[in-house]
């Protein structure tokens, strides 16, 4: 019997994970976190650190919001969530300054701007505030990974075509004339639109979308 329970719990975790990474992917399903997606996806190094920071903040804030969910008065829950998220973002910023000063310097203001990433608030309010800590942790990590996959998918063509490099390593030879527009803001719009298009073509539409005929907003 305990085996059975474990299996059920595990399959529920897997469901939550799959939903976060793909079925309800924050970027191409929920259209959340677009600002940072457009802003930092022109260099691979920045993208990877941003993704790691976001996964950490998302997982920690989801667990904390979930642990406090039965004690937090309903009407101040948003303020409490913002406070929790801000605290974790500051921790990330301090740790980057202390242990990865070069990367912290390169990311500049973007680390602080994780606070305003709608995905974190969206998951805290939409999932963690009504679910136990373990599924909330899984949901946080999954949504973070879902965000990162799209970010990386957008960054690869942008950095490669825009500068001929990946992780600052020259991959395309002298013959390649960099498409500067790819590292400029318009390049982000092209790359994001293409990524969303390709991902949505290959993703099965969730049941809700089939009924309403549009993505959840």
């Amino acid at each position: 019997m305990p085996d059975m329970m474990k299996k059920i719990a595990l399959s529920r975790s897997w469901q939550v994970f799959k939903t976060g990474v793909w079925n309800e992917n924050p970027i191409f399903r929920q259209i959340l976190g677009i600002c940072s997606t457009l802003a930092i996806t022109n260099l691979m190094v920045n993208t990877v650190v941003m993704s790691a920071g976001l996964i950490f903040v998302l997982a920690c804030s989801n667990v904390t919001v979930s642990l406090l969910r039965n004690y937090t008065p309903r009407r101040i829950r948003m303020i409490v969530q913002t406070l929790i998220i801000a605290a974790y973002v500051i921790v990330v910023k301090i740790l980057l300054d202390a242990y990865l000063p070069d990367v912290s310097e390169a990311l500049g203001a973007y680390v602080g701007l994780i606070i305003t990433n709608c995905i974190i608030m969206g998951r805290a309010e939409g999932f963690a505030s009504s679910n136990p800590p373990w599924p909330s942790l899984v949901d946080g990590v999954a949504c973070g990974i879902g965000y990162s996959i799209i970010l990386i998918a957008i960054t690869i063509p942008r950095e490669l075509m825009g500068q001929g490099t990946l992780f600052h390593v020259q991959l395309l030879g002298e013959w390649w004339r960099p498409w500067t527009i790819m590292v400029m803001p318009p390049g982000a719009f092209f790359a994001l639109a293409l990524a969303v298009w390709i991902a949505r073509r290959h993703a099965e539409p969730p049941a809700a979308e089939q009924q309403t005929g549009g993505p959840p907003q």
Binding site: R75, V80, I84, A87, I90, I94
Partner: peptide, 19 residues
């Protein structure tokens, strides 16, 4: 509500200051 907010704010300020 007020007490809760004060405690939460103090708690998280403490954690970030500590780090």
């Amino acid at each position: 509500t007020v007490l809760y907010m004060v405690l939460i704010a103090a708690g998280f300020t403490g954690v970030t200051s500590g780090v």
